[in-house]
Amino acid sequence: MAEPRSIDIKEQPGFRSIAVICLLVLYVPVLILMIFSLNSGSLVTHWEGVTLGWYGSALRNEEFHNAARNTLIISISATIISTVCATLAAIGMTRVKPWRGLAAAFMVINLPLMVPEIITAVATLSFFALIAGTFGLNFGIGNLILAHTVFCIPFAYMPIRARLEDMDLTLEYAAADLYATPWKAFKRITLPLLVPGIMSGAALAFIVSFDDFTITQLVAGPGQTTLPLYIWNQIRRPMTPEINAISTILLLVSILFVSVSFLIARRRAK
């Protein structure tokens, strides 16, 4: 592909402008939202001047604190559980001889990605209502953590599995040759090589949990308002630029985690 012609033959007319349009469509609305979070006027749509005041009032707002705390408890717990499970599952499904049921297991892991969110949401709601009604069981915020863990697992699983498949097995065999126990070989060889995949998977799991609205809205119980639910409640009230400030904070957290995940993956590619 090093021929001088190669760039030329790859061109298609108009594609560049469409790509630029796509980027504009994706970015202009959120950029405007971010800019208006700096608006000093109290009406959302009239620009009056620059201030960081809305960030101040957002950060001092106790409801926001509670929502942020709930979100972090849920997201961090779901991320840890799902990443551990996904790592184990990825090893159990790649470092093995194909076993009967492997395809089915693979489907189960990916199931949460195939089911529309609204269905998962009402199904989870019915499930927790049933066990609360029948056995008197209510895990409190654990309900949300479990619900989130379910859909975080496939997101954590994908990069870890991809990493395992790309890995050079020679080292693992060499370790086995040198009479390392399977656990030692795993700890000294496989795990260190797997870390970028795990980190990348954990970052993705964190973001999907952090941003989830639909499932959280239906499953959440008392005192379990998360940041997306908080924003939802705010949208339905007279809006001030504070909501833009809070939204911008959420976006920045997502951007941070995507970038981290991306940079780790890129380092891996090198």
Binding site: A132, G133, N138, G221, P222, G223
Partner: peptide
Amino acid sequence: LSKVRAGNSGY
């Protein structure tokens, strides 16, 4: 009502 009727709402 639907959340309360589902039982054990915690409220």
